[in-house]
């Protein structure tokens, strides 16, 4: 693992704090699409079960070797990892809407946007993710990947 990779900014989610208000999704869809629509958010919060005993969050981790990038068939690739920031970004001008990335990602982060005929995904709001900034409870936070790894529970 390279040093830059460990210093990259990532999101972490604390299920202990999350109240399931879904405001992160609303903030995300508003920032990217100017709509308050949960379907248009690039991150997801799900109830763990019908009893709402907890919530689960799925957000882009901006992987070191992104599988979405590998799956992208265009040349040059529509999905690239920014060498400086480490964010994995879709270039909407190059995307052909084949949905390969949608299926390749193990947590289905890239989503197909029907009106535009292309896929899109979290771009970390260019370094200032609105989901974490506006999170109602402080359950979502921005930390470096090194710090995030320290919060992982021991196996």
């Amino acid at each position: 693992m390279s040093k830059d990779f460990l210093n990259q900014k990532v999101l972490i989610y604390n299920p202990e704090k999350c109240s399931g208000c879904y405001y992160c999704m609303i903030a995300c869809s508003f920032y990217h699409n100017e709509e308050a629509d949960l379907e248009k958010a690039y991150l997801r919060v799900y109830p763990q079960d019908e009893e709402f005993t907890g919530f689960v969050n799925a957000h882009c981790t901006h992987c070191e070797y992104p599988i979405c990038e590998a799956a992208c068939p265009t040349e040059p690739k529509a999905i690239t990892k920014d060498p400086n920031s480490g964010f994995v970004i879709i270039d909407r001008m190059r995307c052909i809407g084949c949905k390969s990335c949608n299926f390749a990602c193990p947590i289905s982060i890239p989503i197909f946007e029907k009106p535009f005929g292309i896929s899109n995904k979290c771009n970390f709001c260019d370094g200032d993710p609105r989901c974490a900034k506006y999170c109602s409870t402080g359950a979502l936070e921005v930390v470096t990947r090194k710090e995030a790894k320290e919060t992982e529970p021991d196996e």
Binding site: S19, G20, C21, Y22, Y23, A36, L38, F52, S136
Partner: peptide
């Protein structure tokens, strides 16, 4: 369900 949100942000959607 003390921790669960009342639903105000969701009502925006």
């Amino acid at each position: 369900a003390e921790k669960i949100c009342c639903g105000f942000p969701l009502s925006l959607y």
